[in-house]
């Protein structure tokens, strides 16, 4: 760690990612060792998770890069972008969790419509028409291709 005067910024997302990687490596190793400490169980898992742990700690400092003096304006626009990504990701998550309760047809219709809106389409008739057509084609296409049924509500 260099102790010069340059200011350091915290990349919170980066920290989250590293915490996730390091944390899951530790948790995985503990879980594997709890199952059994036999060679047949941990021959690869133990050295690899220790490797990930050490490497993760070495990389940790990279989550605190020196500030290159970016101004408030770029950071604000970046924040706006992040919010859009977050909203889309949230919509995607809701879509996936609702697949079996709403049915693939209804969930897809809502997600595509919502996704179109989030991605910047504002003409309501375009959103409605596209979402409807897309749902019809994809649902019937996959139903035809896949050798087992999908849960549906309307179709």
């Amino acid at each position: 760690m260099d102790r010069d005067n340059a200011r350091r910024r915290v990349e919170w997302g980066h920290l989250v990612l590293l915490a996730l990687i390091i944390g899951s490596a530790i948790a995985y190793l503990l879980d594997a060792r709890a199952t059994s400490t036999a060679t047949n169980n941990i021959a690869l898992v133990q050295p690899t998770s220790v490797f990930v742990f050490i490497l993760g700690l070495l990389v940790l400092s990279q989550a605190f890069p020196k500030t290159d003096g970016d101004d408030a304006e770029t950071r604000a626009s970046e924040r706006a972008e992040l919010i859009r990504v977050g909203l889309l990701a949230a919509a995607f998550g809701v879509f996936i969790l609702s697949l079996e309760t709403l049915g693939f047809d209804l969930a897809t219709l809502l997600f595509v419509a919502g996704g179109l809106y989030l991605c910047g389409e504002r003409r309501v008739w375009v959103i409605a028409l596209y979402a409807l057509l897309f749902t019809l084609i994809v649902v019937s296409g996959y139903q035809w291709l896949v050798p087992f049924p999908f849960p549906m509500t309307v179709l």
Binding site: F92, F104, C119, F150
Partner: peptide, 19 residues
């Protein structure tokens, strides 16, 4: 345009993952 492509491909990938 990506505003169509993004939700569409996400949905198709989901169908594939379910399949």
């Amino acid at each position: 345009p990506l505003r169509f492509l993004i939700p569409s491909v996400l949905a198709v990938s989901t169908f594939g993952a379910y399949a």
